[in-house]
Design a protein around this nucleic acid. Structure first.
Lengths: 223, 223
DNA sequence: CGCAAAATGGAGATGCGTCTCCGATTCTGT
DNA sequence: ACAGAATCGGAGACGCATCTCCATTTTGCG
């Protein structure tokens, strides 16, 4: 082979971003972080662009839509969250593990007001957001099995049940988070206690299957 | 006083609606019921008008907005709901009463897909919707006091805590109701069990005050 | 009947967020 | 220093729901 000017030989040829482009991209992410952390996903991509001191067109060339920018902004929080979830799944005490898992999933959502929305509603997801559902579900599966062995949850609870509860708590954070960012911590013990093993009667109905659960997770609330 | 042509002497003079107007109004309510029951609040007032075979202008003269029409459509469900709630509040067994109260509030929301949204988001409410919050809160207060006496709930639970839980369940219905309209029944026992008296540690943080609770109840979910 | 008041209906104004287009500007390799 | 490519910026097109305006039609009283 002749001279290969591109360092990135194996991957698809990628010429480095121009310096002004990189600067603008960074400015957009910074502005996005600022606005999204403070106001959730309410601000428009136009808002973020203005706040970053660039034109709307620039914003839309760098990020196809608000959610793409939000994913860039929140990438680190998401990987942190997944790490924390994995750590929770490794706890031998299943009850503690479940509590830690809820914590791992909810605490970041309470800290970053846009995170919950991105996790649930982003129209097209990229790493690391794209496999949050799978990864978390694995953690749930692991802990749930362990919890059943240790008899610390009622046996008719399924993984999607836990998922539903997590999404409910996420909703609680979204709805009441600006009045009291820690309110979810108040309800977590109630929930966890409710999941405990001493069940007088089996849970009515059947749990959701994973597909239905995922499908309804996204933007459902109507006009 | 001279002759009073109007039968409705005491109230503000109200001349009877013209026959075509009454017909259209009824058609709108019927069409609204049909569309709202099937699709929640998604359809626009324009949709309902078309479905009722009347012009948009007509719809907007009869009802200032979608929520006003929805309230007319759902009025009966709401009074039924309040009756059921009052009945629940009269049960001597506080645990059963609480369960019945949740049922009274949630079952209608599951049956009428638009109800939850109206209860939470309607921008201006008229009877009987306007005092749902007060009436329900009274029921909660009554039952909660009784439940504490009977030691069937942990003593650190407040009325707004119950309200928050009700709103969460309402959200569950909205989010997952079209996949499984009865899913909420699966989670109710978990919740109720979680509220029970054997508390290993006090609930963290403080409960919401009523004002904050009400204020955050409305349309919060963002773009 | 006849006529004034009431009611109609639907085109289109308004508002809001999303996103595109393209002439102007700024970079970068030579 | 210069050409050509890459990037910028923001006016405005678009989609969608909400709501208004007023020329026309319907009603019902006298």
């Amino acid at each position: 082979m002749a001279v290969n000017k591109n360092v990135n030989a194996g991957a698809r040829t990628v010429r480095p971003r121009r310096r002004d482009a990189a600067r603008n991209r960074d400015a957009l992410i910074a502005a996005g972080r600022e606005l999204f952390d403070a106001n959730g996903l309410t601000p428009t991509l136009d808002d973020v662009a203005r706040h970053a001191g660039v034109g709307v067109g620039t914003a839309y060339r760098h990020f196809p839509n608000k959610y793409a920018l939000a994913q860039a902004v929140l990438a680190e929080s998401v990987t942190d969250m997944l790490d924390a979830a994995d750590r929770a799944a490794q706890l031998d005490d299943a009850a503690a593990g479940l509590a830690a898992l809820f914590d791992a999933v909810l605490e970041p959502q309470a800290a970053k007001r846009a995170l919950g929305r991105v996790l649930r509603d982003a129209p097209d997801t990229a790493p690391p957001v794209d496999d949050v559902h799978t990864r978390i579900e694995n953690c749930i599966d692991t802990l749930l099995e362990r919890a059943r062995e240790q008899q610390v949850v009622r046996s008719d609870i399924t993984a999607t049940d836990i998922g539903v509860l997590m999404s409910l708590m996420g909703h609680l954070i979204e709805r009441f988070g600006d009045v009291d960012a820690h309110l979810w911590r108040r309800f977590l013990p109630i929930l966890l206690h409710g999941l405990r093993a001493d069940a007088p009667a089996p849970l009515p109905g059947t749990a959701l299957n994973t597909e239905d659960f995922i499908s309804r997770l996204g933007r459902s609330t109507q006009p």
